[in-house]
Design a protein around this nucleic acid. Sequence first.
DNA 1: CAGTAACCGAGACGGTACGTCGCGTCTTTCA
DNA 2: TGAAAGACGCGACGTACCGTCTCGGTTACTG
Lengths: 214, 214, 214, 214
Amino acid sequence: MCSSPTTKRTGRPRSADADRAILAATRIALAEQGWGRLTLGDVAARAGVAKTTLYRRWAGKNELVVDAMAALFEEQLDLPDLGSLEADIRGVVLRFAELLNRPETRTALMAVIAEAAHDDALRVRIREAIVDRQKHLVVLGRKRAQERGEIPPEDGAADAAAGPDRDNLIFDVVAGAVVHRVMVSSEPVDEEWAGRLAVLLVVGLAGLHTAQDL
Amino acid sequence: MCSSPTTKRTGRPRSADADRAILAATRIALAEQGWGRLTLGDVAARAGVAKTTLYRRWAGKNELVVDAMAALFEEQLDLPDLGSLEADIRGVVLRFAELLNRPETRTALMAVIAEAAHDDALRVRIREAIVDRQKHLVVLGRKRAQERGEIPPEDGAADAAAGPDRDNLIFDVVAGAVVHRVMVSSEPVDEEWAGRLAVLLVVGLAGLHTAQDL
Amino acid sequence: MCSSPTTKRTGRPRSADADRAILAATRIALAEQGWGRLTLGDVAARAGVAKTTLYRRWAGKNELVVDAMAALFEEQLDLPDLGSLEADIRGVVLRFAELLNRPETRTALMAVIAEAAHDDALRVRIREAIVDRQKHLVVLGRKRAQERGEIPPEDGAADAAAGPDRDNLIFDVVAGAVVHRVMVSSEPVDEEWAGRLAVLLVVGLAGLHTAQDL
Amino acid sequence: MCSSPTTKRTGRPRSADADRAILAATRIALAEQGWGRLTLGDVAARAGVAKTTLYRRWAGKNELVVDAMAALFEEQLDLPDLGSLEADIRGVVLRFAELLNRPETRTALMAVIAEAAHDDALRVRIREAIVDRQKHLVVLGRKRAQERGEIPPEDGAADAAAGPDRDNLIFDVVAGAVVHRVMVSSEPVDEEWAGRLAVLLVVGLAGLHTAQDL
DNA sequence: CAGTAACCGAGACGGTACGTCGCGTCTTTCA
DNA sequence: TGAAAGACGCGACGTACCGTCTCGGTTACTG
């Protein structure tokens, strides 16, 4: 979460309820006011907590919102096995789009990424708390597809090296395309669009495997 | 730009130098401080202009930054003909990544998109000033590929309807993937990555054309 | 008062109404809440003024209260000619005690003196804004008494040198005794007490003149 | 001191060392920071004591500082017999001025008096802990002077009634004048000034005895 | 080529939120 | 059961920007 004082001894311990209440209040406030109008004082008030308590745990708006988003992603993102790689992609795309269409996510996610552009610590925090969780879905999906025989297993040395690169590419394409569709193009991510993207990826991925020198 | 005084009358006209100085100062300030620390007072001071003058021309931070970004995109984005669809994609990907790696673009673009999540007027402004300019590149690239015979021309009625959808998909995938790679994954967009993405797209696009019912 | 920017040129000038409203609000708030509970935010609100406006003019609570007290002293302290030195002393003692019994003076005066104990600039400000005004009354009273022939004029060199010392002594005794009676002993300064103090001073002052070597 | 637990029972008894450490820390902190910047948390830290411990013994800053000052006055103020009323006055004036010039006294004494202006309980505490100790010196000095025959004994009924009034007047004049000289006029209380004040008082006091109807 | 209307700089204004500090209370663990 | 440690709710602090509003002074069109 935020604090991990290795040697915690005396004194009154921090309230775990407060953490939960603050993160929940953050999400609600984000949905209502948006990132720009979000006020830590308001979050504290909604959580029934003093402003100082909030500042004791988080360094600022950025860190707090990242943690709030991380909690949301953790409880929302998974990868149910839908039987085929294409279906898995369609499923996760729709799931991710649904998450991005929540008002709190719409306003918060791009904002923290923007802040992270000039804040290394924040970028690391985002990666650890949010991005890695998503990337894991790609790895999981690829393994399933290999088990199903939809894509070849990694056996050669060159292939084993290219594997992570392919994972990363797929990750950036899927996540990036959905985010761009939702946030920039402002058009719906429906079954049809998700289907087209899935076809593009499955076919294209096969092409990547074929092109040996990549 | 920003002001279109339909009825131009008497009195001293607004200084065009001021506009330029303000936009330039905005970009510099963005690069130095990032969106969050960007101050209109600071921009005015850098531009050697009174705050009042700035507010006479732009409604606020969002609009100002969108215009500053639009000017940057206008002068930076184009699509030189590199001889093949795959090469064109590689080229535009590298060009776009280069643009996104400028410090002012990194912080500003995501920030205005975040603000646009709950501001319709801003979203329209972004689309007109920035997004449409990028999307035009996709259309142009597709037409060139059709002229070269790399992808089939739109002849059937079903195909003509699917064309714009494909353009939009390609647009979201290319732009989204590059943005995600640069901003979220924080990994380099180099020749290799751009090549992989181009292969994925060219092969995948062919798959899309094959799958008639999409 | 507080600001005397010798070269004031461009820009919106400061509102003189604001100064007056703030000082008046300070006095009222002092009377109601006392020094300890006095809040600059509250003063600003009472004055119908933004907190920033207040801070633009005064460095803090101390300076503001000194100026508010100074305004009060200026409008309240004078020395009507009551016909004799003894009567003049009785008069000014009663007048000063009345001033000290106002709730705003009771709470504010000692507090700023306490703060001045470790703040040289504040001590100077108090002296210039408040103390010198009181001390002037002593000088005036002495001159009147000399004109009346109640005390000898300064003619000798030694006497001329001792004059200011005597003035200062009288000043400290009168002001100090009244303040101590009101603030520390918490007993009334009535005609009887004022009369006794006046006798003490008039007789004692004659003794001082007699004691040549002092 | 402050707590008189009538029924002393079981459990760990309160540490008397803590009381002393706290009062000493209070004096040091007062001297360093002044009243306004004095922090109970800081006092507790200096005393090596938990804030809780401090609050168990004193109700707040005011009470704590009054007790710290009382301890200081108790160990510093006395009235050695210097052979004459005038010499006794000179002596006590110099002694009191010396006390007032300590940094902790300068800031603390005026501050608690200011607080007492709107806090009756505090005023009583100050009177009992500090003022009465000083006033006793006046009574003692007057008795010595009567024994020496410098001033007439109280024999008449009218005189017996006027006696306490005269004591109180002398008390307010001496204490007030010294405080005012030191704190407000910020000028030194030296042999010369003390001598002049003593002459003023001795001569003036004779005048008061002469004026029977006062 | 004089008037004048709109511009411009400077900077004070009423606000809102900030992040910090100290208060006095509380809840722990330790001795 | 008292004391240390320290988190807690609270409220004020002084600061930073916001976007607006006077000001005096400056253009550059227009009559």
